[in-house]
Design a protein around this nucleic acid. Sequence first.
DNA 1: CTGCATCCCCACGGATACTG
DNA 2: CAGTATCCGTGGGGATGCAG
Lengths: 117, 117
Amino acid sequence: MSAECPSREVLQHVTSRWGVLLLVVLMGGMHRFSELRRAIPDISKRMLTQTLRDLERDGLAARRVFPTKPPSVEYRLTALGNSLLEPLTALVMWAERSQTKIKRARAEFDGATAAGA
Amino acid sequence: MSAECPSREVLQHVTSRWGVLLLVVLMGGMHRFSELRRAIPDISKRMLTQTLRDLERDGLAARRVFPTKPPSVEYRLTALGNSLLEPLTALVMWAERSQTKIKRARAEFDGATAAGA
DNA sequence: CTGCATCCCCACGGATACTG
DNA sequence: CAGTATCCGTGGGGATGCAG
């Protein structure tokens, strides 16, 4: 668990703010740049490009450019990216299953600290 | 995948920089505050406390205080926290399995962009 | 030992404008 | 449409000090 532990760096990328979301969307198949923007409305062009680049750099996503009149670019998961699919969806599903419990725990906690002495 | 999607918030906590690490350590059983510091050398007191509080607030970890001479505090996972164990370790194991491939992909990518036109 | 509060810095990330 | 460059604010998070 030391700072040098290599998997920590890997985890950081995979669990980064936008990384997870992008990966989840890409798990649905290939998508164009603008499609990704629409899929995640609150991401900026800047962050979308940058996060995409990180995923590409880590060999998780592949970029394919079509030199059409208005250029279009497609992104899809690589084999490595697909191997992440299972553990990641497991985590996402856990999050969905647990959100109610967490919400309740949070409300209780806040109530306790606010009221409770 | 909208900004309001509740699971996004949940994921953010669980996948936060120190959250993952703390959870992984706590999966090994109960730990004292100072033990956690030693387990994750590069976390500051401040962040340790804060992250612990977040986990507690979300009902993932439980805090137990012993009013001994020098006070001691123990942290352990709750039932909800334990339910996260499986998906999270799956992800960590994936990270460990894949780190070599990712390192290679990264080297190749950097080499290509540096040299390649 | 545990854990708040304060100060402070920097990089994460948003908005905007420009190019191919 | 896709991507880059620039500017700049916010807050994450480190260091330190005090308190129970």
